[in-house]
Lab assay of single mutants.
Amino acid sequence: MRKLSDELLIESYFKATEMNLNRDFIELIENEIKRRSLGHIISV
């Protein structure tokens, strides 16, 4: 996760939620978004 750019991480989050991927996977992405202080972009 740390090698993904912020932009790609956010894009991955939206794609994963759109495709209804595994909730655990989405939570991993959400946690990384929060760690990077980007939660305001997706309202996490």
Rank of each mutant, 00 (worst) to 15 (best):
S43G: 14
V44G: 13
N31D: 09
S43V: 12
N20Y: 07
I26P: 00
L8V: 12
L38K: 02
F25G: 03
F14R: 12
I42E: 03
I29A: 02
K34Q: 09
I42A: 04
S5F: 03
L4I: 06
S12L: 15
L9T: 00
I29R: 00
E18T: 07
I26A: 03
R23F: 07
K15G: 05
L4S: 03
K3N: 15
S12N: 07
E7R: 12
E11C: 15
G39C: 15
I10G: 01
R35K: 05
K15Y: 14
L9A: 01
I10P: 00
E30F: 14
L4F: 09
M1G: 02
D24C: 10
F14P: 00
M1T: 04
D6Q: 04
K15I: 11
A16S: 06
N20Q: 11
E30L: 15
N22T: 10
T17F: 14
E27I: 13
I10F: 05
L28H: 05
M1H: 04
S5M: 03
T17P: 03
L4M: 14
E27V: 12
E7H: 11
S12Y: 15
E32A: 02
S12H: 12
L9E: 00
R23I: 08
K34D: 04
L38V: 02
Y13A: 01
Y13T: 00
F25C: 12
N20D: 08
R23D: 06
Y13D: 00
N22S: 13
H40Q: 06
R2Q: 15
F25Y: 14
L9P: 00
E27S: 11
N20G: 14
H40E: 06
F14M: 10
R35E: 03
L4Q: 04
D24V: 09
L9C: 01
E30T: 12
R35V: 04
N31H: 10
N31I: 11
E27Q: 12
D6A: 05
I42R: 04
K3Q: 14
G39V: 09
L38F: 04
R23E: 05
H40D: 06
M1Q: 02
D6I: 08
G39K: 08
E32S: 01
I41Q: 07
E18D: 07
I42Y: 02
E30R: 13
E30N: 05
I29P: 00
R23N: 07
I26S: 02
E18F: 09
K15S: 08
E18W: 09
G39D: 11
E32L: 02
F25H: 06
V44K: 13
K34M: 12
K15A: 10
L21M: 12
S5I: 05
L21Q: 07
R2M: 15
D24T: 12
F14H: 08
V44Y: 09
R2H: 13
L28E: 08
S43W: 06
D6C: 06
M19G: 07
E18I: 10
T17M: 15
N31Y: 12
E18C: 14
D24K: 10
S37L: 13
E27T: 12
K3A: 12
F25K: 05
S37G: 14
L4D: 01
I42P: 04
R36V: 01
F14W: 13
L4H: 03
L8S: 11
I41R: 10
N20H: 10
M19D: 07
I10Y: 03
L38W: 02
E11M: 15
L4G: 01
R2V: 09
I33Q: 00
L21C: 11
R36I: 01
I33A: 02
L8W: 09
S37D: 09
R35T: 03
K34L: 12
S37N: 13
H40W: 14
E27D: 10
F14K: 11
S5A: 05
R36W: 02
L28N: 05
K3R: 08
L9I: 04
R2D: 11
K15Q: 09
G39Y: 15
F14G: 03
I10W: 05
K15W: 15
T17W: 15
L21S: 09
L38H: 02
S5W: 03
D24Y: 11
I42W: 02
S12E: 12
S37E: 09
R36T: 00
L21T: 06
F25A: 06
V44W: 14
V44Q: 14
R23W: 09
M19P: 02
R2F: 11
Y13H: 02
K3F: 10
R35W: 04
D6L: 07
K15C: 13
L9R: 01
N31K: 11
N31F: 12
T17A: 10
L9N: 00
K34V: 08
I41T: 06
D6G: 03
Y13Q: 01
E7L: 10
E18G: 10
K34C: 07
K3M: 10
